[in-house]
């Protein structure tokens, strides 16, 4: 257990040294927050009520879907499985430590947004912070689950970027975080319903943490965990 905790702490430190993770987990989401926060609240003042939820969904999606997969495939593609086997360490250790570390960084990024948004743009704070943080935790876990599947399933980094964008862009455009999804055609609304970002956004709205909004993210999370465990048993992982 001591080794695992040290591994997670070490991964957090290494992530802070990684420019790409710093960029996708902190710098880009925060720049996006500063730009869109100003524009949205000026154009649509009623967005102050959901600004935090919108920016948080976008930031978490970016960090988990675009930031995590390359780091994960870099580790597993570099032959870390041999090191794990030789030292009696379970193969899932790399995924788990990276996911926990990314979880911590994404929570920190979200806390910065939650603290700054009311001051900078007059955004409304969540009425029930504990409920909001629980919903946020669920959405971060689901997004990281998908990011881990991408990192393990797609070894090539350019393909990874392409696949990540296929999930990320609709998550921003079709899920109601930028503009009401009712404005979209029915077909695109249906596509939006399939994306965890839509459900994560609903979960974080006031009174949104209910089973009706929770079942789909949990199914996606469970599927991701199962897929990761299958991917870790692939011949090139098993050797």
């Amino acid at each position: 257990m001591g080794a695992f905790i040290y591994g997670v702490a070490l991964q957090c430190r290494m992530d802070m040294r990684s420019k790409s993770l710093l960029l996708t987990c902190y710098i880009v989401p925060l720049i996006f927050f500063l730009l869109t926060g100003g524009i949205f609240t000026a154009v649509m003042p009623e967005m102050r009520g959901t600004l935090i939820q919108s920016i948080v969904v976008m930031g978490v999606s970016m960090g988990a879907l675009i930031g995590v997969p390359p780091s994960l495939s870099e580790i597993y593609g570099g032959g870390i499985t041999k090191v794990y086997r030789a030292n009696g360490v379970p193969l899932y250790t790399g995924v788990l430590t990276m996911a926990i570390s990314a979880f911590v960084h994404l929570v920190l990024m979200c806390v910065i947004i939650i603290l700054l948004a009311p001051v900078a743009f007059g955004a409304e704070r969540p009425e029930n912070p504990a409920e909001f943080m629980a919903a946020l935790g669920v959405y971060i876990a689901v997004s990281l689950g998908i990011g881990c599947v991408l990192g393990l399933a797609v070894g090539n980094q350019s393909k990874q970027t392409m696949v990540a964008q296929i999930v990320f862009l609709p998550s921003i455009m079709l899920t109601g975080i930028m503009f009401p999804s009712e404005l979209l055609p029915d077909f695109l609304q249906a596509v939006g319903e399939l994306l965890p970002a839509r459900w994560g956004y609903r979960l974080m709205l006031e009174g949104g943490l209910v089973l009706e909004n929770l079942w789909y993210p949990l199914v996606v999370l469970l599927t991701s965990v199962l897929t990761c465990s299958i991917l870790l048993k692939k011949p090139n992982m098993k050797l």
């Binding site: 080794a3 040290y6 591994g7 070490l10 430190r13 992530d15 870099e74 580790i75 570099g78 870390i80």
Partner: peptide, 19 residues
Amino acid sequence: STLPAYIRPMEAVKLFAKW
């Protein structure tokens, strides 16, 4: 190339020692 790019030698040694 079996170790992460940002790990420091002393950190790697400590991690292996803990394992």
